[in-house]
């Protein structure tokens, strides 16, 4: 076991949690990510292997599925696989082992920072942040959206609970934008 200590995307040793009124924004560093892109002509095989890995049918366009290992659609024949970091730090290798040459797999764990937004008026916060019709998003929806000029993924875990993935290097700016919106509208 190596002896290098991790820091969160916001630079702390512990994840940051901010609450304004009834909405909470929580930094979530405990997630491992790996991208999966089907190889040419191997799309069906890749989907099948991915489905087996996440335990459910491979998510369709704009959707995510699976637990505890899940995947969300990111592009044509492309997905991002999510899993708990503590049990899956080596996720990319695990996914590669499962899918083999049917897909290209790339570690994405630290390419992203995740903030989970929860609370009764979370939609009011999101409508200040991104152009998605968040009021129409249902559990299992995943969409790409620009937040504060950052390319993000927004996942609807339930109508009052969303995950936002943004580029890790801009975690501070993204967090600032989210908390500013929370303070503005709540």
């Amino acid at each position: 076991m190596h002896d290098l200590a991790a820091i969160t995307a916001l630079g702390g040793s512990e994840p940051r949690v901010d609450t304004v009124a009834d909405v909470t924004c929580a930094e979530v560093p405990g997630v491992a990510l790996a991208s999966v892109a089907a190889r040419s002509g191997q799309e069906a095989k890749a989907q099948k292997a991915l489905a087996k890995l996440i335990g459910v049918k491979t998510p369709d366009i704009g959707r995510f599925a699976g637990d505890p290992v899940s995947a969300f659609w990111t592009g044509p024949d492309q997905w991002m696989v999510e899993a708990p970091f503590d049990s899956h730090e080596g996720l990319a290798q695990q996914v590669k082992d499962a899918i083999g040459d049917a897909a290209s797999v790339t570690e994405q764990t630290d390419a992203w920072t995740r903030f989970d937004l929860n609370g009764g008026r979370v939609l009011a916060v999101l409508e200040l942040l991104c152009p998605l019709d968040v009021r129409k998003m249902a559990e299992g929806d995943a969409a790409r959206a620009a937040i504060h000029h950052l390319g993000c993924f927004v996942l609807c875990r339930s109508p009052g609970s969303f995950s936002v993935y943004g580029p890790r290097s801009s975690a501070g700016s993204l967090h600032h934008a989210i908390v500013t919106a929370m303070k503005s509208t709540l």
């Binding site: 592009g75 044509p76 959206a145």
Partner: peptide, 12 residues
Amino acid sequence: RELWYHEGGDRS
């Protein structure tokens, strides 16, 4: 007919 890149989306 013109080319657009969905950079803030699925990169198509």
